[in-house]
Amino acid sequence: MQCAGRFRAALALAGFALAVGCGRPTTPARPVAPNVAPRAAFIDQFDALWTRFDDVYPSFAYKRVDWNAQRARYRPRAERARSQDELVAVLIEMLAPLHDRHVWLVDPRGQAVPTYRANALTNFDRARWEAAMRDASIVRRNEIGEGLVGGYAYLYIGTWRAPVDIDALDLALERARDAQGLIIDLRTNAGGSDGTAMAFAGRFTRRAFPASYVEIRTDPRVTDVEMPLARTIAPRGPWQFTRPVVLITGRGGLSATESFAAAMRTLPQVTVIGDTTGGASGNPATFALGNGWQFTVPRWLEYGPDRQPIEGRGVAPHLAMAWDPASYDSMRDPLIDAAVGLLGERTGVYRIAPSGSADPPSRQLDVRDRH
Score class of each variant (00 low, 15 high):
D55R: 02
Y57L: 01
A29Y: 05
V56F: 09
P38L: 08
V56Q: 07
G23P: 00
A19F: 14
F60Y: 15
F16A: 12
G23V: 04
W50M: 03
Y62D: 12
D44E: 14
F46P: 00
A41I: 08
A19L: 15
P58F: 09
C22N: 06
W50D: 01
Y57T: 00
A48T: 00
T26A: 13
R30K: 15
L49I: 05
V32N: 05
P31E: 10
P34N: 07
K63D: 11
Q70N: 03
T27C: 04
A40R: 12
A69W: 07
R24W: 11
N35S: 07
D44F: 03
D66Y: 10
A48F: 13
V36A: 12
Q45G: 05
T26S: 14
A41T: 13
R71E: 05
L49N: 03
A41E: 13
V36T: 06
A40E: 07
S59K: 04
A48V: 01
R24H: 06
L49T: 01
A17C: 13
F16V: 10
L18P: 00
W67T: 11
W67R: 09
R39D: 01
Y62I: 00
P58I: 12
K63G: 00
D66K: 04
V56G: 02
R39V: 01
Q45E: 06
A48K: 12
P28I: 13
T26W: 12
A29C: 07
P28L: 15
G21Q: 08
A37E: 11
A17Q: 09
N68Y: 09
Q45L: 10
N68V: 13
G21W: 08
V36W: 12
V65W: 14
K63P: 00
V32A: 13
A61N: 15
K63H: 11
A61P: 01
D47N: 11
R71D: 07
P25H: 03
Q70G: 02
D66Q: 05
P28Y: 09
A33C: 06
R64E: 09
G15Q: 13
R73Q: 06
W67F: 08
